[in-house]
Design a protein around this nucleic acid. Structure first.
Lengths: 208, 208
DNA sequence: TTTTGTATTAACAAAATTGTTAAACAATAT
DNA sequence: ATATTGTTTAACAATTTTGTTAATACAAAA
C-alpha cells in the first residue's frame, strides 16, 4: 500500500470494514459505523461497494486467503529432519495466528452460520490440506521405519496442533482474567504456550 | 420439565430463544423468528420477557452455569490415582462438550464482543478454577515426588485439555468437509479424537 | 356472579439500518 | 474553456426490527 492508497477513501473503507467485521461479525457490523471509522459519509461506502454484502465478500475472500497461508505455515520446511520440521511448523503456525488473532473466530463463525456459501472454497483448501497430509505422512512413515518416532496418524497430529495453537487466541479474552499470574504478561504467556504446544506434540510422536 | 411446561408458552419461547441465540448469536437472532419458532405472536415474547436483551440474559445465565459444570467435569474423581483421575477428567469434559456442542462458540463470542458485562461472572468462575488448580497441582506434585509422572504446570495441562476437547467441536463444521474418510462417521471420529486427546496428555505427563 | 388478574391478539409506533438519488463539485482530457 | 468523467454530499425512501398499547377473552377468587 503506497501513499496514495492510504489517502484513498476506498482503501480506508476496506480497512475500517475489516476491523468491524472481524470484531463484530456480519450481523453485528454496521455500514454507518464502518463509514464513520473510515472518515467518509455512508453514501460513499455504497458508492464504492454497492451493498454491505459485497463489501463483506471482499473481506471474507481476503481472510480465507490468509487462512490458507496459515495452513502452509504448519507444513514446515521439507528440507529439515522430520522432528525439526514439525517443531518449526508448529512454531510458524503459532506465530502466524499470533499476527492474525481475530482470524479463527471470524472463519469459524462464518462457516458455522453460512456453510452453504463455502462449497467452492472447500475444494481449494482441500487440495492444500491433502498435499500437506500426504507429504508429511510419507516423511513420518519413513522416520517411523527408522525407529526415530512413533507411527502416528498425521491428520490427528495436525488437528492437535491446530487445536492448541488456535485455541490459545480464540479463548484468550476468556482465560486471561481467570488465570492470574500465568497470563499477567501477554508476550511471556504466549512464548510459554508456544513452547508447551511444541513439547506436547514432541512427546506425542517421540519413541519412548 | 413436566407436561405443563411443555405446553406453557413462556417455556416454549425459552426453548426457541436458546436455539436461535446459540446458533445465530445476539445480533443475528430475531425476536420475530424466535416467536414464530415457539408458535406464538411476537407480542407474547415481549409480554413475558419485555425486551430481547432480557430474554437473552436468561439464556446467557443458563449457558454460563452449564459452562461452569463443564469445568467441574475436567476435575475428575479425586478418589482415583492421579493418572486415572486425569484420564477420567479429560473423558468427562469431552463428553460434556459433546452434549453441548454449541456452547463454546456462544461463550467465546459473548466474552469477546461484550467483555464488560461479565466482571461479576469472572469472580464466580475464578473461584472454581482456583480450587481445581490447587487440588490437582497438589496431587500432581505428590505423584511427581513419587516418580510416577513428570513435574508439570497443571494450568498449562488444563489449557491443553480444553484446547483439544473444545476445538474438536468448535471447528467441526469447518474440518468435516476437509478431512474426508477420517470424519465420514461422526461418532467414530469423536471416539477416536477423545482417545487421541487422552493419549496426548498422558504422554505429556508420563515419566519417560 | 361480580371482580380481579392474567393471557392473547391485532394494530400501531419508533428507531435503526440499509440503500438510492439528484445535484454539486473536482479532476482531467480535448 | 468546455465537455466528460468520476467523486462527494445531503436529503430521502424502504425495510426491518423491536417494542407498545388498547381491546378482549379467559380463568380463578371473592
Amino acid at each position: 500500500m503506497d501513499n496514495k492508497e492510504k489517502q484513498n477513501k476506498e482503501y480506508q473503507i476496506l480497512i475500517a470494514a475489516e476491523q468491524e467485521f472481524l470484531t463484530k461479525g456480519y450481523d453485528g457490523a454496521r455500514t454507518t459505523s464502518i463509514a464513520k471509522a473510515a472518515g467518509v459519509t455512508h453514501a460513499m461506502l455504497h458508492y464504492y461497494f454497492r451493498t454491505k454484502e459485497q463489501l463483506f465478500e471482499r473481506i471474507v475472500d481476503e481472510k480465507f486467503a490468509t487462512m490458507s497461508h496459515s495452513m502452509f505455515a504448519i507444513m514446515g520446511d521439507p528440507s529439515l529432519p522430520i522432528i525439526e520440521r514439525i517443531k518449526g511448523g508448529i512454531s510458524a503456525h503459532f506465530d502466524f495466528i499470533a499476527e492474525n488473532p481475530l482470524l479463527p473466530r471470524f472463519i469459524i463463525n462464518e462457516i458455522v452460520t453460512r456453510p452453504e456459501h463455502y462449497e467452492v472454497l472447500y475444494k481449494r483448501i482441500s487440495l492444500i490440506i491433502e498435499t500437506i497430509f500426504h507429504d508429511l505422512q510419507f516423511e513420518v512413515n519413513r522416520a517411523a521405519e527408522r525407529g526415530e518416532i512413533e507411527r502416528v496418524d498425521v491428520k490427528m497430529i495436525l488437528i492437535s496442533i491446530m487445536s492448541m495453537n488456535i485455541f490459545t487466541f480464540l479463548a484468550y479474552p476468556f482465560m486471561e482474567p481467570l488465570m492470574g499470574e500465568l497470563m499477567a504478561n501477554r508476550d511471556k504467556f504466549l512464548a510459554a504456550r508456544k513452547a508447551e504446544n511444541i513439547e506436547t506434540i514432541m512427546k506425542r510422536i517421540k519413541k519412548q
